[in-house]
Amino acid sequence: MYSRKLWHFGMTAFVVVMLMALSISHIFSSDAKWEQASAKGLQQKISLGLEQIYWQWQNEGRPSEILYRPENAVQAVIIKLREDGKPDFALSDDNCRKFLNWFVQDVSLDQFVNVRVEGSQDPQKTGDSAQANQRACSYTMANQSFAYDLKDAQLRSE
Score class of each variant (00 low, 15 high):
Gln58Asp: 11
Asp84Pro: 02
Tyr2Asp: 15
Arg62Gln: 14
Gln58Cys: 06
Glu83Asp: 14
Tyr2Trp: 15
Phe112Trp: 11
Ser157Gln: 11
Leu100Phe: 04
Gly119Ser: 04
Val107Leu: 14
Asn95Gly: 06
Lys40Gln: 10
Gly49Ala: 06
Lys5Met: 12
Lys151Cys: 06
Ser38Met: 05
Gln75Tyr: 11
Ala153Arg: 07
Trp7Asn: 12
Ala39Arg: 00
Leu42Gln: 01
Gly61Thr: 10
Glu65Lys: 15
Gln58Trp: 01
Ala132Trp: 13
Thr126Tyr: 03
Pro123Val: 07
Arg156Lys: 15
Thr140Cys: 02
Asp122Lys: 14
Val104Leu: 07
Phe112His: 08
Ser25His: 09
Asp122Thr: 13
Ile27Lys: 06
Tyr54His: 11
Gln52Ile: 05
His26Pro: 02
Ala130Thr: 07
Phe103Met: 03
Ala132Phe: 11
Val17Gly: 12
Gln36Asn: 12
Arg62Ala: 07
Ser25Tyr: 05
Ile79Arg: 00
Cys137Pro: 00
Asn72Arg: 11
Ala73Lys: 00
Gly61Ala: 08
Asn72Leu: 12
Trp55Ala: 07
Ala13Phe: 13
Phe103Pro: 00
Asp93Tyr: 10
Phe9Gly: 12
Trp55Phe: 15
Trp57Cys: 00
Gln52Gly: 06
Asp31Met: 09
Phe14Asn: 02
Lys98Met: 02
Ala142Trp: 02
Trp102Val: 01
Ser47Ala: 14
Ala132Thr: 13
Gln44Cys: 01
Leu91Val: 08
Pro87Gln: 01
Gly49Ser: 06
Gly49Pro: 05
Arg82Glu: 11
Ser145Ile: 04
Ala37Met: 13
Asp94Pro: 01
Met18Tyr: 03
Asp31His: 11
His26Ala: 10
Val104Gly: 03
Ala32Val: 13
Arg116Ser: 14
Lys125Phe: 06
Asn114Leu: 12
Asp149Ser: 11
Gly127Gln: 10
